[in-house]
Write a protein that binds this DNA or RNA. Structure first.
Lengths: 209, 209
DNA sequence: GCGGTAATTAATCAAGTGTATAATTTCACA
DNA sequence: TGTGAAATTATACACTTGATTAATTACCGC
């Protein structure tokens, strides 16, 4: 009986593969299904190998969460593109309510992880960082949009607008990703842009990307 | 060595206790911490007893989820009270962004459960029912508010407003319950009411509860 | 080509899980 | 006050989990 053949990989590649396999497992089977054996199998590797690249399973999962959140925010941020503040804000909104950010698989992973935040300090930290990053991005963009329109606004006002807009985007993202409604017949981007404009006190007709 | 003493309870009481113990476990330890032994311990009972009242652990968890969602919606609905449609909508909003609906423990439980929805059909059904119920409630109230104000609106318009308002409430609920921000210094009810009014095209000064 | 090193596998372990069942105890009812 | 039936406990089982370690294998540098 011969052993299975294998080939060596760089640390970066292996870590990447293992994280990807973890996210796949979580997406399809939930967090409980992301066992060491399942992850190893999906990564085309043996369970024992995981511990060469991650101290323990907890670290692996936390790393996967970190990568996931980081990629998610990067994808949203990429929608900003360049141009006027208004254009960038509109781009962020569009990106937030369309694939790949707004997507069933993405939501599944997010949901699985979010449930651990309260009882796991390591996960809480990862969550907190990502959340802050997105919220700051939204707040900054709002401030820029107001400045661009020569509209005076106190930091408090901007902060409150950021809270509300952030909530709206989160909620829409969840609703759309969940897919409970028939959003295929609806122009979700238009709805998101219009509501945003309304909330910020901008004429919707004047707020496009 | 003598056995521990015990006393018999009605089926209703025992089921209730076990479900409460399950929710407590989930809230404090996450879904993974809600083991049969932990739940039994918190219910002051022996693990084996669980299976006399629930076919298996899956059923127990699903039942806990069902009561949780049901109670949550009931709490929100209770905020509606009676009076004009506008008053009731305002009441629903107030209830949605204040305790006990908006609350860390509530969010923890919700988050833990929501992560299972995608990979567990039974949980998906429970979720779907609750989600529908809340969404319909919001949509109905919006329709009544518009009717009350003598403002014509097509079903599509109402539907879209419901989507947006529901998203806003979900998002605010999460943000507030998460407690990342310093909401203690903020009048979250006022913020929620004002944004709702703005979204629905109502003068915020004219929308109070 | 070849040897040494480090990556990878294979096999195993202890702990914890949900479940099943027989032995006990409580309590309603005679 | 006994007694039978039902609720509850205690114990055990089969299985899965994350972790550990020794044996093997690939491959880099000479």
């Amino acid at each position: 009986m011969t052993r299975r053949t294998f080939h060596r990989e760089s640390e970066a590649v292996r870590q990447n593969d293992l994280i990807a396999a973890t996210l796949d497992s979580v997406a399809e089977l939930g967090l409980a299904g992301a066992t060491v054996r399942e992850v190893a199998f999906r990564a085309g590797v043996t369970p024992g190998l995981i511990r060469r690249y991650f101290d323990n399973k907890e670290r692996l999962v936390a790393s996967a969460y970190r990568t996931f959140i980081s990629d998610l925010i990067a994808a949203a941020e990429a929608g900003c593109g360049e141009g006027s503040a208004q254009t960038r804000l509109a781009g962020l909104i569009r990106a937030s309510v369309t694939a790949p950010v707004a997507d069933g698989r993405t939501l599944s992973i997010w949901a699985a992880f979010i449930g651990t935040v309260h009882s796991d300090p390591a996960m809480a930290e990862v969550h907190s960082e990502g959340y802050q990053a997105f919220r700051d991005l939204v707040e900054r963009l709002i401030a820029e949009v107001f400045a661009e329109r020569g509209r005076p606004a106190s930091p408090q006002e901007i902060h409150q607008h950021a809270i509300v807009l952030n909530a709206l985007l989160d909620g829409l993202w969840i609703e759309i990703s969940m897919g409970g409604d028939d959003f295929s017949r609806l122009n979700v981007v238009q709805i998101a842009l219009n509501s945003t404009a309304t909330l910020l006190g901008i004429d919707p007709a004047d707020f496009k990307d």
